[in-house]
């Protein structure tokens, strides 16, 4: 068969596509369980971190999650109830608009939403080195054990922000990331919206 004939071109293209796609399908199929396990671990460890439950490795994380966390049936995005050190907490996944794209967090708080237990960021697309610094420990650490006066927290921006983290857990105030006022403000409303959802879940909502 001539290499330039229509039949050869069609048959060749079809065969090459079929072979390469078959190999890809096999690779995808053989790693499917592993990818699913990674995804599950990522979500479980984020919930545990938000709740302030310490874990050392994958298997311990899975056990602790099973023992202490129970997902709220039918809630979308997911919400969880957990008992840590004898007191009940609610963790919710919440997505809100950042500066460039959506920011997804897991926030854990007491059922009355008056005390934040902790926050973990699941996904964000903010500017690396600026807004992206909301993932840093000094920033997220500010919310750990922070009281929520009047159902709302505030993130200081501009000159008001020291940029080094607010250590006072009584004032419901956190320092914004210097140079990233818009992301910091967006984070403030994401946290406040998540707190509203915690209260709704505690009241029996989904």
């Amino acid at each position: 068969m001539k290499k330039d004939s229509i039949l050869y071109v069609v048959a060749f293209t079809f065969a090459v596509c079929a072979i390469f796609v078959l190999v890809l399908a096999l690779a995808n199929e053989s790693t499917k369980d592993l990818v699913e396990a990674n995804r599950e671990f990522a979500s479980q460890s984020a919930v545990l971190d938000a709740l302030g439950i310490a874990w050392a490795d994958r298997s311990q994380a899975a056990t602790l999650y099973k023992e202490q966390v129970s997902p709220v049936e039918g809630s979308v995005p997911p919400a969880y109830r957990a008992t840590v050190d004898g007191s009940g907490f609610i963790a919710v996944e919440h997505t809100g608009a950042g500066l460039w794209g959506a920011i997804t967090v897991i926030l854990a708080a007491d059922p009355e939403a008056t005390l934040i237990r902790g926050i973990q960021i699941v996904a964000q697309n903010e500017t690396p080195g600026l807004g992206g610094r909301i993932e840093e420990a000094w920033f997220l650490g500010q919310f750990k054990g922070e009281k929520v006066p009047g159902q709302k927290i505030r993130v200081a921006v501009g000159a008001e922000s020291k940029g080094s983290g607010d250590t006072d857990t009584e004032n419901g105030l956190a320092d914004g990331v210097p140079g990233a006022s818009r992301t910091s403000q967006a984070f403030e409303s994401i946290v406040n919206d998540a707190l509203v959802r915690v209260k709704a879940i505690a009241g029996g909502g989904k």
Binding site: T31, N38, R39
Partner: peptide
Amino acid sequence: ILLRAYLP
């Protein structure tokens, strides 16, 4: 695929 499975 390899990164997703082995280096998530």
